[in-house]
Design a protein around this nucleic acid. Structure first.
Length: 273
DNA sequence: CTGGTGACCTGGCTGC
DNA sequence: TGCAGCCAGGTCACCA
């Protein structure tokens, strides 16, 4: 489900409802996510409050006030967060709640359980899952020159390269397909053989694709919804993803669908070289 | 180090 | 209708 734009949209949706409020309790109904939810998460959170919330890659990081530690949330493939003051009693797949003193609840739902809820007392940016992440694509550390330098002598396909979170965070399968189409680069091309000039185009394409998707509230393919349970509207903007066998919007040729690393790749054999 | 594959988990859809 | 097989927005552990 969630790539950078969906995580960003989720974060915007929950921030106001969770910050600067005393945490009354934590309810865990199933701790078996990607990693087990720590057994002492309840005591870690109780009577604390979240001072600020931000996104790093596809992680949502919530810092407790008075440097009491941080919470890391990852949505995996099917995770959803929502915030409400009148939630119904939890049903299947609604694995945990953080309850605030004012009656609002942050609830996590995740059918496939690839997501995570972790805690740390250290600087969260030094957490083992965070510290090796590459630059944010919407920061000034990310540009064509950076991608060009990182890719020298690499043989892996460009699509795998830009989906590697050590290279750049937040680019998942949908936006990798879209950005490569926009840049006119064939997803199978070896990353080490792409010119500096083409990387300049690609970095712009990634930024534009992500920004447009954030503006549209993310992409809802099947069941992504934001913190208020509304879908994202970027699906109608998708040019190639999920369109294998249909016509290229530029040249009308049939879009080719292949698999790379067991993930769907769609591209135009005419427009992408 | 690098790149490729399997694993985790559940449900929806397709086709026999 | 039943059921096997495949697919899905991620990414880590492990292997050659």
């Amino acid at each position: 489900m969630p790539e950078l734009p969906e995580v960003e949209t989720t974060l915007k949706g929950i921030s106001k409802g969770i910050l600067h409020k005393k945490i009354r309790s934590f309810d865990c109904r199933d701790k078996r996510l990607r990693w087990p939810i720590p057994a002492d998460m309840g005591s870690f959170l109780k009577n604390q409050s979240f001072e600020n919330a931000y996104r790093r890659g596809k992680y949502i990081i919530l810092n407790l006030a008075d440097k009491k530690g941080s919470v890391l949330i990852h949505l995996g493939m099917s995770g959803k967060l929502r915030i409400s003051k009148d939630l119904k009693s939890p049903v299947k797949h609604e694995h945990w709640d953080i309850n605030f003193n004012d009656g609002w609840t942050l609830r996590y739902t995740d059918v496939r359980k690839f997501g995570a809820l972790l805690k740390t007392k250290k600087d969260p940016n030094k957490h083992v899952l965070i510290k090796h992440l590459g630059p944010e694509p919407l920061s000034n550390k990310f540009n064509g020159e950076y991608l060009f330098a990182k890719s020298r002598k690499k043989t892996l396909p460009i699509k795998n390269f830009i989906m590697d979170s050590k290279i750049v965070v937040g680019v998942g399968n949908i936006y990798a397909n879209e950005a490569l189409y926009l840049a006119g680069i064939r997803p199978t091309k070896k990353s080490g053989l792409i010119s500096r000039c083409k990387y300049e185009e690609l970095s712009h394409s990634i930024v534009i694709t992500l920004k447009d998707a954030i503006e549209a509230g993310g992409t809802t393919l099947k069941d992504y919804t934001n913190a208020k349970e509304a879908p994202g509207y970027f699906k109608k903007e998708l040019k190639v993803y999920d369109r294998g066998g249909e016509n290229c919007l530029k040249c009308k040729k049939i879009l080719k669908e292949i698999r790379q690393s067991n993930r769907q790749t769609v591209y135009c054999t005419n427009c992408q070289n």
